[in-house]
Amino acid sequence: MKKILLLVLSIALVFLVGCNKDSKEETVTLNVFNWGDYIGEETIAKFEEETGIKVNYEMFDSNEAMYTKLKSGAVDYDVLIPSDYMIEKLISEDMLLELDMNNIDNFKYVDDTFKGLAYDPDNKYSVAYMWGTLGILYNTEMVTEPVDSWNILWDEKYADSIIMKDSVRDSFVPALKLMGESINTMDEGKWEEALKMLQAQKAIVQGYAADEVRDKMIGEEAALSIMYSGEALLTMEENENLAYVVPKEGSNMWFDAMCIPKTAKNKAAAEQFINFMTRPDIAFENADYIGYSTPITEAKKMLDPEIQNDPAAYPSADILEQCEVFIDLGQKMTDFTLEKWNELKAY
């Protein structure tokens, strides 16, 4: 038994040491780090064929996991596709390279609405990949009245049928928006006020869920839940009674965008990749496969008209005007909001 254990341990050690060796290859290899199931099925193969660059594609399941892995330095990533607030964090920590837009010619196809966003005001570091909103996913059989306001999440008729998100910033959006406040407010008093609203709401909330909310909505365990549009579109495919709406008070608008970390070994190839992904026909393929909303106008036009006109995927300009992107609040304020969150959960 000991011998076997020893053998296993030594193999593990050899493996650990072996992993550090750099493999010398002739062709350029691009390390791309993206969300799971977040690219067209043949997109990478097409890119490899067109450019002769080999893509080493890796996936993450949360921005935080991406951040931790990037920091650990285990792999020198060339292209990352994280969300807005994470990009802002990476910029503030000086972990991203400035993009040379001369190499990303297709940037011109990105809709003007999605340029110069709060997390990267001068478009120096990132090119939008997909976008969406935070809204209410509801069951039309269980909720017969029209849903257009966050107010419905406080309606006692739906006691024990409302699911909030197990995330501070997301769950505070309805309260702050109902107060007419910015979701990025730095005013501690406003957060206190929003907390009072959420504490009052807690009695009728079924739970604060993460990914399992999708199963609960599909299984009709709840009537209303707050959810991100991309996730909502996928969930709606599984149950035809579900509908998604962005409340009139406005909401959060999110982006996943492509950027190049300082660890990149092949900046030119990385820019080539970003340029490729922004090309209308490729962006269309991606949006069509993933089902999320594309920021490339030309690509949107190629989509099924039913999707193009679906307010869940592409809300009206009026509503988008009310929406804000999350801004990193800084460590002190983040800790404060988390404290409020814990107060909410402390009973």
């Binding site: 604060y208 800790d335 959960k345």
Partner: peptide, 28 residues
């Protein structure tokens, strides 16, 4: 508590996880 408690009740494990994953406050 996250799954069966529907995230409504925080136990100490949740708070620790939160400090590492949500607020990056490794110190606390």
């Amino acid at each position: 508590p996250k799954l069966l408690g529907s995230g409504k009740i925080n136990l100490i494990g949740n708070l620790i996880e939160q400090q590492f994953v949500q607020s990056y406050n490794w110190y606390f």
